[in-house]
């Protein structure tokens, strides 16, 4: 096994990683998947749960190994909840749950609780998704990584990839320059290089 090569074992379905928005009934689908309707965690955390669980379903996993790294990027964060808190602040104190929902990092305990998992998780932003991929590859343990790019409406997004360390395949790797390339359905492998992250297709 090469510690600098990873295989994509799961990704969010429905073309979400290629720019499609989640289906209109994503909240209903999430409630069915969880067996309950999530309460008071906010739309960003709900979207994160929707995409992450869909990705893990594709990977055939219900939880994560302890030494998996979970990294989430949300460029806009919980901005609608922040605006709501700022509005409440003009009148008095905000509602406690409004304040909690305005903390982007609250999606991490929501994910950890849903997966019944605890481990290395963080909200890290970079303009260039490849720089985030490099950072994740650099830090990932033997359990690999679960990476998410989540944005609240509009347009909503929740693209997740599950990657595990693997033996380097005999495939042609090319440098990735965008999330589209990192997460493309044609991309099956990542390899950390001096310049960034290279991607390769699957066999055949």
């Amino acid at each position: 096994m090469d510690s600098m090569t990873w295989k994509i074992t799961g990704r969010t379905s429905g073309g979400i990683c290629s720019g499609s928005e989640p289906p209109d009934n994503w909240r209903e689908q999430l409630a069915v998947r969880l067996g309950y309707r999530p309460r008071r965690i906010g739309v960003l955390a709900e979207l994160a749960l929707f995409g992450a669980l869909d990705c893990l379903d594709a990977a055939g996993e219900t939880t994560l190994p302890a030494d998996t790294m979970l990294q989430v990027c949300s460029l806009r964060g919980s901005f609608s909840a922040i605006l709501q808190v700022l509005e409440q602040n003009r009148e008095g104190l905000p509602m406690p749950f409004s304040f909690l929902q305005s903390q982007t990092s609250q999606l991490l305990p929501a994910l950890a609780a849903a997966l019944k998992w605890q481990g290395d998780a963080g909200i890290v932003l970079a303009r260039n998704p490849v720089e985030l991929a490099v950072l994740a590859c650099q830090q990932a343990g033997s359990g690999g990584m679960l990476l998410g790019w989540v944005e609240e409406p509009r347009p909503a997004s929740s693209c997740w990839l599950r990657l595990v360390p693997c033996v380097s395949p005999t495939a042609s790797f090319v440098a990735a320059s965008s999330l589209m390339e990192l997460a493309s359905p044609d991309t099956h492998y990542w390899r950390l290089s001096r310049e960034g992250v290279e991607v390769a297709p699957g066999p055949g």
Partner: peptide
């Protein structure tokens, strides 16, 4: 390269680890 770590109170320590 510029990264923003915004994981509430632990942000700086996570940044140090990264």
């Amino acid at each position: 390269p510029v990264y923003l770590v915004s994981s509430a109170c632990t942000s700086s320590l996570q940044a140090i680890l990264s």
